[in-house]
Simulated assay, not measured.
Amino acid sequence: MTRGNLYVVSAPSGGGKTSLTRALVPLLAEQGIRAVISVSYTTRAPRPGEQDGVHYHFVTEQRFVEMIEHGDFFEHAHVFGRRYGTGRAKTEELLAEGADVILDIDWQGGRQVRALAPDAQGIFILPPSLAELERRLRGRGQDSDEVIAGRMREAQDEISHFDEYGHLVVNEVFDRALAELAAIFSRVRQGDRTPRNAVPAGLTTELLAKKGPIG
């Protein structure tokens, strides 16, 4: 059986990677490609609607540290005061079964993955503008202006690592971004690992410009 491919998919908060990757899995299945989104472990509390074992494996700080000591993580990171990690055994099992495994993680985890698996494919999803990114964050209706301002600063820090990824996709029109993602997976399955950059000239410079929140 052909071994599956490992993907690191990163984006700033509000970039849309969760919605895109969850829509991607059934789309790839229609093309005969089995893809699985890795369920990460985290020490943060569940958000409304999140289920243990579906969105994340929610564990205590003590349990997470024990897993680190036992070498149970493929990668792990401390992000915004909470820990996140990818289980090693399950990842290896899925890859051996021939499934493409999607790691929905940040740039810190991405670096660890590339150190262990240099052939992993990195995909970074960018917003079309800072204004649109803030609009999406506000649209969640969950955070105060202060929290959103902090998330915007964190987003720019995350975006600053875009050049560590081989493939870049702009999530301006959801269906178009989804099609671009599916095309990457299809090409890699066919042996074409050429980096793809679907980013308009000047966009990354604009996204990294030091600006305050729009609203």
Rank of each mutant, 00 (worst) to 15 (best):
171 N>D: 07
96 A>V: 09
81 G>C: 10
59 V>K: 04
194 T>R: 11
73 F>L: 05
209 A>R: 15
66 E>I: 03
99 A>R: 11
9 V>D: 00
164 E>R: 13
113 V>C: 08
47 R>V: 02
91 T>A: 15
83 R>N: 13
109 G>P: 04
203 L>A: 06
180 E>L: 13
61 E>A: 13
73 F>M: 05
81 G>H: 10
18 T>Y: 04
208 L>N: 05
97 E>I: 03
175 D>T: 10
10 S>I: 02
202 G>V: 07
35 A>R: 02
145 D>M: 10
164 E>P: 01
150 G>H: 11
41 Y>S: 10
45 A>E: 14
37 I>Q: 14
63 R>S: 12
17 K>H: 06
201 A>L: 10
158 E>M: 12
184 I>D: 00
26 P>T: 06
128 P>R: 10
93 E>N: 08
51 Q>G: 00
170 V>N: 01
18 T>E: 13
11 A>N: 04
44 R>T: 07
113 V>W: 01
185 F>P: 00
190 Q>V: 00
91 T>R: 02
148 I>G: 05
91 T>N: 04
45 A>L: 13
47 R>G: 08
99 A>Q: 13
27 L>G: 01
178 L>D: 03
5 N>D: 12
112 Q>P: 06
9 V>L: 11
38 S>R: 07
153 R>A: 14
158 E>N: 11
143 D>G: 03
5 N>E: 13
78 H>G: 01
121 Q>A: 13
185 F>T: 00
154 E>M: 11
99 A>S: 15
124 F>W: 08
58 F>A: 05
31 Q>I: 00
193 R>M: 01
212 G>V: 06
29 A>I: 01
118 P>K: 12
61 E>W: 07
2 T>H: 12
211 K>N: 09
100 D>T: 10
203 L>M: 07
215 G>V: 09
96 A>H: 11
195 P>M: 04
195 P>S: 05
90 K>S: 12
134 E>Y: 06
155 A>F: 04
142 Q>T: 14
90 K>M: 12
88 R>N: 10
165 Y>M: 06
174 F>Q: 04
53 G>M: 08
34 R>H: 11
215 G>M: 02
140 R>W: 02
163 D>M: 09
22 R>L: 09
206 E>P: 01
100 D>C: 15
26 P>R: 08
21 T>A: 02
45 A>G: 04
128 P>D: 11
119 D>Y: 08
158 E>K: 03
47 R>I: 02
2 T>I: 11
199 V>D: 01
151 R>Y: 04
15 G>W: 01
33 I>Y: 00
2 T>L: 12
214 I>F: 13
172 E>I: 00
214 I>C: 09
106 D>N: 15
150 G>K: 12
71 G>P: 05
66 E>G: 03
152 M>I: 15
209 A>C: 03
134 E>P: 07
50 E>S: 09
110 G>M: 04
48 P>Y: 04
13 S>C: 12
14 G>E: 02
180 E>R: 13
41 Y>D: 07
106 D>V: 13
100 D>P: 09
198 A>V: 00
18 T>S: 15
197 N>R: 15
183 A>P: 00
36 V>H: 13
80 F>T: 07
92 E>S: 08
121 Q>P: 03
20 L>S: 03
46 P>V: 09
59 V>S: 05
197 N>A: 02
88 R>A: 12
47 R>Y: 11
100 D>I: 06
178 L>A: 05
38 S>Y: 00
59 V>G: 04
142 Q>M: 14
69 E>K: 14
151 R>H: 12
13 S>M: 12
